[in-house]
Nucleic acid binder design. Structure first.
Lengths: 238, 238
DNA sequence: AAGTGGTCTAGACCACCTC
DNA sequence: AGGTGGTCTAGACCACTTG
């Protein structure tokens, strides 16, 4: 690595990461300054910086001004989940997609999910329940609340034609999103809709999205038995 | 934004993202060339590039040479999960941590989990079962297989003193990791260990790690009833 | 006070891919 | 073939934070 070749930032990344993988540097160890690595690998400091930032974003190293760079002393498994539009997820698995609007109702006041702690005002909402089917079998059941203050025009959308999920993704970008993943016993209604025994425990994803401080939607998505969330591997690079 | 002020890449990010959030540009729309944005915002093209790469990494825009930049036509919810060492997760919630080694046994051949499709050789493994407790209550039960070919020295570690989870994280960096999240009915043994009714469905995380093509470990982590995975919000920036 | 990483610039060249 | 994003450089200055 110390010949006359110019190294790219990806070369630098591989080099430093290689030294961490082969235990030259272990969790907690301090790495050389960017400038020294740059001289050693015959490239500009900004090229080293590009590589190190990439490693820092993956949680592999920690960087602090003046203190320098060290290998993360307590590495975490950082997994990325991409949660697509349900229609696309179903179709990309080779199934035929269909969705069924079960309920769409306007309410004068929102439940606690949609209300920020400080707010005490009653927010009008639309309560939407939708079943997504894969090859005519229940795949995901969505129980959704949409703020009519933030998204008044959803009242004019034909949700039997396009699902609220898909319409919102294409028409209402969000600035913030919370996701929680857990197991829950289905309610009797959910069990009937999902065609499982009452009380069966299923995987649930709850999401809330905001645009700035204004809530857009909260959704509880109950997934069919056997559903698996699979992470994309951040490290899988060529 | 078109005064004489110099804009930072974070200003540029906010500006472009703001235009996407306020629907100036909608999913599928083409954005101006970096160079034009740079002139408009009075900064260098590399500054715009830095901002746009950040947006691309978050899945908000898509960039292709010659074709230009467009707003992602099918946005996904991209959630990041940080899965820490179990001890640290428990302690950061304010509980007292303890772990209990239930079994550690050397086997001559690994089960299918640890073996890459092409390999037919029998790999010697260590089978380790550990219960992690929070305030003396079952929190996570780990059923783990460690390759003795890749990690021979684990035989010399006192796993009653330090959990396999923690020892591996600190001593065996990995280059690749698969994570799957799903609901599973506990086996009778698991139910007894976790102190739940036999057949209760719990949240399971399965992880496999490799260093290059060599498997390190496969673990099935069964989580206590009520456990919730919570994503970190990629967009929560100041 | 000083050392380290973070950012910005202007310019150059490259790589990819659509037009 | 040409237009776009991707990378690299050398240098400058800034911001943070620790010794």
């Amino acid at each position: 690595m110390s010949t006359g070749v110019r190294n790219s930032w990806q070369d630098v990344r591989k080099y430093v990461r290689g030294q961490i993988l082969n235990l030259t540097y272990r969790p907690g160890d301090k790495l050389p300054r960017d400038e020294d690595i740059a001289r050693e690998l015959n490239c500009a400091r900004s090229t080293v910086h590009r590589a190190m930032r990439s490693l820092a974003e993956d949680g592999i190293i920690e960087r602090r001004r003046k203190a320098g760079t060290k290998v993360n002393p307590d590495p975490v498994t950082r997994a990325t989940l991409d949660i697509p539009i349900t229609r696309i997820e179903i179709e990309s698995r080779g199934y035929t997609y269909r969705h069924q609007l079960i309920e769409s109702r306007v309410l004068k006041a929102a439940p606690a999910h949609l209300v920020r702690p400080s707010t005490t005002d009653a927010i009008p909402v639309c309560h939407i329940r939708t079943l997504h089917l894969a090859d005519e079998r229940p795949f995901v059941f969505e129980d959704r609340w949409v703020s009519l203050q933030t998204v008044p025009e959803i009242r004019d959308v034909d949700l039997a034609e396009i699902s609220a999920n898909e319409w919102l993704v294409h028409n209402r970008p969000y600035s913030n999103c919370d996701v929680e993943i857990f197991v829950d016993r289905t309610t009797d209604t959910e069990a009937r809709i999902m065609e499982v025994l009452s009380g069966t425990s299923l995987l649930v994803l709850e999401r809330t999205t905001w645009i700035d401080a204004a809530p857009i939607t909260h959704v509880r998505a109950v997934h069919a038995k056997g559903y698996r969330l699979i992470s994309t591997d951040r490290q899988a690079r060529p």
